[in-house]
Design a protein around this nucleic acid. Structure first.
Lengths: 334, 334
DNA sequence: TGATAATATGTCAACGATGACACATCCGGA
DNA sequence: TCCGGATGTGTCATCGTTGACATATTATCA
């Protein structure tokens, strides 16, 4: 059905080798033959079979992207910028998603290996297992992990400076005279969550506020409902906080609902900031948030990956992406 | 490097044919040979080469997904549910994205054809060109288009009942005594936008409100800023509307900011509803919205596609997905 | 006892593109 | 005139897997 090289060759009256030379613009081809081949390609609507090419060259031109989904994180946005960067560099990005589930991940990794991907991008806040890593390593598949640092041979990392990001956000409150700043964030279940809590603690400690004086509202997960409930609890305290530091915009959005319902105005009556800057700008009013450097993320990731695809070695490089505080004026002086 | 069937065969002391029989659980294999093959597969960490298999079977097991991105639409969410449905059915979904750009689309479609995808899902609110369609058609690639109906041979469609969705939302205002209901939505540039505007007009006309009495605020695009500006304009009218029907949650979110800034309370002072139900629940307060039946979308899409993959024909089937009005109480009686 | 079916395994030509290699021809310079 | 390089083209084994076909052995029944 589909035209193949042989068909082009016959149509143009040359051999498949010459067709190949025209297609790859490599080697000597007479202008005449070239013209005839191009005409035949056009006429028969020839599109080279990537699969056959990959089989013999042993390079698929495909990069796998494993996204471990998880309500309330940035993984969708991250995969989008990585996709854009990959396409810009001429790679095809093959995305597969899963929710936290080792069995699924095993299956997806086998699928990627079956496709003989040239590289793999893992976007996850949990770790791959040792077995999964070794499966990839014996096949010399370059891996770049976003969000989780592996420090493992053959794996490069792109990480967010979450401790510093959270620290800066909390300092924002403290510098404006706030003392009772509450932390709203999930009970740490991965590095990211620990880092943000750690950043909060560091900033508070640096301001001389002792551990037991800190108001920490841990939620079971990310989400609107969790944020709303946490804010309700905090507002009911005898001495409610004057500032709410939320470690996700979704939590902040929920908190805003609680505030709105109680008639507490932002920023006149209370200060608030979010994290991730995903929906912060969509709220009324738009609130402060902490933004990862997504503009660079795609490029950094693909640079690491292509360096490793050219020469596979055992070093494990790590790139740290800094966070940026986006000031929209919802943290005000007391 | 990678183990191949031949290696397994040697290790197990059988031929590749027997290895194949074990792998595909087909044909006769002695329990003993089976055991040895399985052990060899385990030992050598064999993963079949999907590319080679695809080459000879002429089925890649890959479904292409072309997402034409566009700020403010649901395409990310849609691609996610389609991905889930595809994975559940054992297909690999290969997603590529582009922004409105025919040249890019041509390139991506060629990439898909090069990969010999078994089917293609197009998520776009603009049409593929005639050339693109015929390229796919000569190769008998089943195509399912989401959002845009093609009524073109070889293309199945999954469409949203946007006229009815908008109509129902506007009726919600009218039934509660509103007369001055404003429409906030982009100047129609594709069917979706026209449909939502049409729905608004129908509902208003049915309530006896003449065309010239209708308040229509057309924006240049979807987005927070556009929604905010439109709401500001409307609030400045001598007789401001009592209800705002926004054809996207992002527009509604912007409108909410304008309301908040002016101290107009929702829903006490004004009624409002959004569309798409993407961020409506994250706002303070959460607002009414119109929700496409995303739960069914993935399944419906994949059903159409797999039916067509089994038997390619020229019929163009169309599935209409109904919209659901989500009532959160932000449209109240006057 | 021989015919037949069921069981078990191996051989080999595809799939479509690649690229090493061989073979031609032509030109310029020694 | 002969040689070497540039130019132009074709042949064929190969990539890893599949599946049609051939072959061999054992069990079953008339």
């Amino acid at each position: 059905m589909d035209a193949k090289m042989k068909d082009i060759a016959r149509e143009a009256g040359v051999s498949t080798a010459t067709v190949g030379r025209v297609l790859h613009k490599r080697g000597y081809v007479s202008p005449d033959a070239k013209k005839r081949v191009e005409a035949a390609v056009q006429k028969l609507g020839y599109v080279p079979n990537t699969l056959a090419r990959a089989l013999i060259t042993n390079r698929s031109g495909i990069i796998g992207c494993l996204v471990v989904e998880h309500a309330g994180n940035l993984h969708q946005e991250i995969s989008r910028v990585v996709l854009a960067a990959a396409e810009a560099r001429g790679y095809r990005l093959f995305t597969m998603q899963t929710r936290l589930n080792v069995r699924d991940e095993d299956e997806l990794i086998r699928q990627f290996i079956g496709l003989r991907v040239d590289g793999l991008v893992v976007i996850s806040n949990i770790y791959l297992t040792r077995e999964q890593l070794s499966l990839l390593r014996t096949r010399q598949v370059p891996v770049v992990a976003i969000e989780r640092a592996y420090f493992s041979p053959g794996v490069d990392n792109v990480c967010f400076r979450d401790v510093e990001g959270a620290e800066e956000a909390v300092r924002h409150f403290l510098e404006r005279g706030h003392r009772r700043v509450a932390f709203i964030g999930p009970k740490p279940f991965a590095q990211t969550e620990e880092d943000r809590l750690e950043g909060f603690r560091r900033a508070m400690a640096a301001a001389g506020i002792p551990e037991y004086g800190q108001t920490v509202a841990l939620t079971q997960a990310y989400g609107i409902d969790e944020g709303r409930a946490a804010a309700q609890r905090l507002l009911a305290l005898p001495e409610p906080p004057t500032g709410l530091f939320c470690t996700a915009d979704s939590l902040a959005a929920g908190a805003m609902q609680a505030l709105y319902a109680r008639g507490v105005r932002v920023p006149q009556d209370i200060s608030i900031s979010g994290y991730d800057n995903r929906i912060a700008r969509e709220l009324a009013p738009p609130i402060d948030s902490v933004e990862p450097d997504l503009d660079n993320l795609g490029g950094v990731t693909m640079d690491l990956l292509s360096a490793r695809m050219e020469r596979f070695d055992d070093a494990g490089r790590t790139e740290w992406l800094r966070m940026r505080y986006v000031d929209r004026g919802t943290v005000t002086a007391l």
